[in-house]
């Protein structure tokens, strides 16, 4: 009898803590999102799903929703593709590996906002570093206005997103790689397996749980990531680089529609919750099989 309750009892303190930190704000958001609220968050009458309906009818919100999906897939996918080889190289023994690891990790140590500010300067049309470098190398013959339109601004933002996501992802993979015993590779090499076969049959399968973790965590971080896009374009020009968080910020603190902004944040919460549940379910089923 005692055994059955003991686990719940043991998790109770942390559950309570989680309730205070997570459930209470969510409850607050639900309150605001389902009421008519004034500019300062004071609740007026109950309005049901009116705020959600207003969102669905707003083309800027719908566009931001799709763009957030694209943004997340590109940044998380790009970071994963880049991090696997980087981690594998850093896992091999070579002279100067310590320094190489520090260099890879460095972007992580710099605040995201600062990184974005520096890139904003670097991408400036008339006095930016990137344009002078490209002009100097003879790759372009006139300045490119990187941040003037979404067709160049958004890809650059994705690239910077990948750049700042790589260190964390690499760290996870390095942990995973160091847990793979060397004997496996030695045995495979003795049997005549090529490096590609070794990667496909040993490294990748054993790294999979770590890849799954990296996907889930990165998706959550990137989906909610505010500084890069806000600092560089504020979601502009004309909302063409907005993702959900920047759209939310403008709704809440520029225009003062706290009800709709809370509804956006609930939608974001729901998307992430569903994604995480489905993904974890799939990943665990795969592991059991």
């Amino acid at each position: 009898m005692q055994n059955r309750f003991l686990p719940y009892l043991l998790t109770l303190p942390s559950l309570l803590l989680a309730a205070v930190v997570i459930f209470w704000p969510v409850w607050d958001l639900i309150q605001i999102a389902t009421h008519d609220v004034n500019r300062f968050g004071q609740l007026r009458e109950f309005s049901g799903l009116a705020n959600f309906a207003a969102l669905a009818a707003d083309p800027d919100f719908v566009a931001a929703l799709w763009r957030t999906g694209l943004w997340t897939v590109l940044v998380v996918g790009g970071a994963l593709l880049l991090s696997v080889p980087v981690a594998m190289i850093l896992n091999t023994d070579f002279y100067g590996r310590g320094i190489a690891r520090v260099i890879i990790m460095l972007p992580w140590a710099v605040s995201l906002t600062m990184t974005a500010v520096v890139w904003r300067w670097a991408l400036s049309g008339e006095s930016g570093m990137l344009n002078s470098a490209l002009l100097g190398l003879g790759i372009i013959d006139h300045n490119i206005q990187w941040l003037a339109q979404a067709s160049t601004a958004f890809p650059m933002q994705v690239l910077i997103g990948i750049l700042v996501t790589v260190p964390f992802t690499t760290t996870i993979f390095l942990g995973g790689l160091s847990s793979i015993p060397d004997d496996l590779y030695e045995a495979a090499a003795l049997e005549g397996a090529t490096p590609l076969q070794q990667f496909r049959e040993i490294t990748f399968p054993l790294l999979k749980p770590f890849i799954n973790i990296a996907i889930v965590l990165n998706t959550i971080y990137v989906f909610n990531s505010f500084p890069i896009i806000w600092v560089m374009t504020q979601g502009g020009p004309a909302n063409s680089t907005d993702i959900l968080v920047t759209h939310l910020y403008k709704l809440a603190f520029r225009i003062g529609k706290l009800g709709e902004a809370s509804a956006v944040s609930l939608v974001m919460f729901a998307i992430l919750l569903v994604f995480t549940m489905i993904y974890v379910r799939l990943a665990m089923r795969e592991q059991r099989a």
Binding site: S124, G125, E126, Q145, A153, P237
Partner: peptide, 21 residues
């Protein structure tokens, strides 16, 4: 005008002015 109007906020244009451009 300066190129890339939509990438220049007030401070950016002021900087171009200060640079004599």
């Amino acid at each position: 005008t300066e190129p890339g109007v939509t990438s220049n906020n007030r401070e950016d244009v002021q900087n171009l002015f200060k640079q004599g451009k």
